[in-house]
Structures are given as structure tokens and as C-alpha cells.
């Protein structure tokens, strides 16, 4: 919305963060590079969830597209010997978007918990199929070819850095495009759909079509995230589509809030950090830490952590 961000600093901020990653990356320990890459991958999925959440929809099955992205990347390596990260992300996004385009005709008719439940069922269908498909490794999953970019295999010391910078660049570009989309009339329709769909229809717009578009964009973003996570981890398995994975993405999105396209990435970094630290301190209570954080955010910061930063006057 034009006056939510009076002077929009999102694009320079994205650029600055990307630059900071490129410059400071070599100084970071390997585990931090890995943590950031996974956070970027999950942030992409969460960005897609944010688009849906702005329209009042919570998908309990976004892991479907994360998994499609991951398995597309895996299949490219296994069946076509392709290990290029960018190509994997592009193909992951395309495959996810294609599936979403078809399923969207169904899903765009649903609202509230039924949207969540149906998306969860669809995601579990993929889980059920992958867990039993031997050519794709059943429940064990398959390994991903070592990452390359533009045909070049980075030396071992620099692989994590290269993957992170590639992922960050793609994420920054995607966030900028989503930002642009949010400013179009169709993007601005989201809170209106959430508030009052009857009015939207009588205004001459199709809420269903708008939701379908958001669903496809969200899937493409999740597909990129899945491919990036696959190449960073070097392994994929059906758990990528399990409902608890979707739960993680929802967690990140709620934690972050919907006020900025940068929020999901911040949320994802925070999530991965809480999880890593909590797991280190006490491996048996990290879920409890996450649960309590989520509860506190829902109750005390219903618009997410980002609302602490944005200065929109209370109406």
C-alpha cells in the first residue's frame, strides 16, 4: 500500500544486505554460512506464505513446493547430470509454479481452515508418494550432486560461500520483484480480500483469481527455496513435504510478520538461530523454546517482529 511505507527504502536495504553478505561472508565460520543459506532458503518459502497470509490465508502445506523444488534439483542431478545451482533453482521454481497453476484452480476456492487443511492434504500426498518411490530413494531420499555454477565447481574452501552468495542474490532479486508486485493493484488487493471478499467482488475484481496468482508466485518462491536447500545440504528426503516442515514455515512467517518483503528472511535467520542455539544448550527443549516464542509473538505481537521496526502510526 502506497502509504504504509511513505518513503520506500526496501530496495536499497536489500542491496546493502546483499553487499554485506558478499563482503563479510569470507570472514564468517562455515557453520554460519550454512545457517544463513538455509535461512535464505526457508525465507523464500516464508515470503510465499507471507503473500498468502496478507490475504488472510494460511497454508499448512507449503512444504509441497519446497519439496518439489528440492526433488527437481535432485532429479536434475540424478537423471540429467545437471549440478548448476542457478539451473536447479530455475527448474525448481518452474516445476513448483506449474503444479501450483493446476492445483490453484482447486485451492483458490477455499478459505480459512479449509485452505490450510486441503493444502496440507496435497503436501502429504507427495510425501506418501516419495516415501514409497524407490527410484527416488524412498524415505532415505537421495544425494545431490556437488554444487556448480556456470559450469564451474568452486574449490572446497569456498563452496559454502559461493552457495550463500548465489542464494542471497536470487533471494534479493525475488524479494525486489515481490515488492514490485505488492505495489500493483493486484498486490494491493490482498488485505482487501482478507477484510471483505464480498466487496472485492462487487468492486469488479475476482478474489479467486487474485488468490490463484498469489498461490503460483508463492509456489515458485518455495521451489527456489527447496532447490537452494537441496544444493546446500547435499541431500533431500520426503520429510521436506511432511506437515511439520510446513509448520516451520508458518512459524517463520508469523514470527516475521507481513509488513516487509525482508521480514521473512529476518524471521528465518532468527528461527534457525533460536533452533541452533536452543538445540546446543538443551537438545530436548528446543521445540518448547520455539513453541513459547511463537505463542508470545501471536499474543503480544500479532503483526510479527517486524512491527517493532516499522513506524506506521496506529490508526
Amino acid at each position: 500500500m502506497s502509504n504504509i511505507t511513505p518513503r520506500d527504502r526496501t530496495l536499497p536495504m536489500l542491496g546493502a544486505v546483499l553487499l554485506a553478505v558478499i563482503v563479510l561472508g569470507p570472514l564468517l565460520p562455515k557453520w554460519a554460512l550454512f545457517l544463513l543459506t538455509i535461512a535464505i532458503a526457508k525465507g523464500m518459502v516464508s515470503l510465499g506464505l507471507m503473500l498468502q497470509l496478507r490475504a488472510g490465508l494460511v497454508s499448512f502445506g507449503q512444504a509441497l513446493y519446497y519439496c518439489i523444488g528440492g526433488y527437481t534439483a535432485g532429479s536434475l542431478g540424478r537423471f540429467f547430470d545437471i549440478s548448476d545451482m542457478l539451473l536447479q533453482m530455475i527448474c525448481g521454481a518452474s516445476a513448483a509454479a506449474f503444479v501450483a497453476l493446476i492445483l490453484g484452480f482447486l485451492l483458490a476456492r477455499y478459505r480459512g481452515i479449509f485452505y490450510g487443511l486441503l493444502s496440507m492434504a496435497l503436501s502429504m500426498i507427495l510425501y506418501g508418494l516419495l516415501a514409497k518411490s524407490e527410484s527416488l530413494g524412498s524415505t532415505d531420499g537421495i544425494n545431490i550432486l556437488p554444487s556448480t555454477i556456470f559450469g564451474i565447481r568452486p574449490v572446497q574452501e569456498w563452496v559454502r560461500y559461493v552457495v550463500l552468495v548465489t542464494g542471497c542474490s536470487v533471494a534479493a532479486l525475488a524479494a525486489a520483484l515481490v515488492q514490485r508486485y505488492l505495489k500493483t493493484p493486484l498486490g494491493q488487493l490482498s488485505p482487501a480480500i482478507k477484510d471483505n471478499e464480498i466487496r472485492v467482488e462487487y468492486m469488479g475484481a475476482s478474489a479467486r483469481k487474485a488468490i490463484h496468482v498469489k498461490y503460483v508466485i508463492a509456489a515458485a518462491l518455495s521451489g527456489i527455496g527447496g532447490a537452494l536447500a537441496a544444493t546446500a545440504v547435499g541431500h533431500i528426503d520426503p520429510d521436506m513435504a511432511y506437515w511439520t516442515t510446513s509448520g516451520e514455515f508458518i512459524f517463520i512467517t508469523i514470527l516475521a510478520g507481513t509488513r516487509s518483503v525482508a521480514a521473512p528472511f529476518l524471521g528465518a535467520i532468527l528461527f534457525e538461530t533460536i533452533r541452533t542455539v536452543a538445540f546446543d544448550i538443551s537438545p530436548n527443549t528446543w521445540q518448547m523454546t520455539l513453541g513459547i516464542s511463537l505463542l508470545l509473538v501471536i499474543v503480544f505481537l500479532p503483526e510479527g517482529l517486524w512491527s517493532l521496526f516499522s513506524r506506521r502510526k496506529a490508526a
Binding site: 500500500m1 493493484p185 493486484l186 472485492v200 468492486m203 469488479g204
Partner: peptide, 10 residues
């Protein structure tokens, strides 16, 4: 603005 946005879009 939302209403006008729809008009623009259509």
C-alpha cells in the same frame, strides 16, 4: 485506493 486499483487493473 483499493477500489481505484481494481478499476485501473480492469
Amino acid at each position: 485506493m483499493v477500489s481505484l486499483g481494481v478499476v485501473l487493473r480492469n
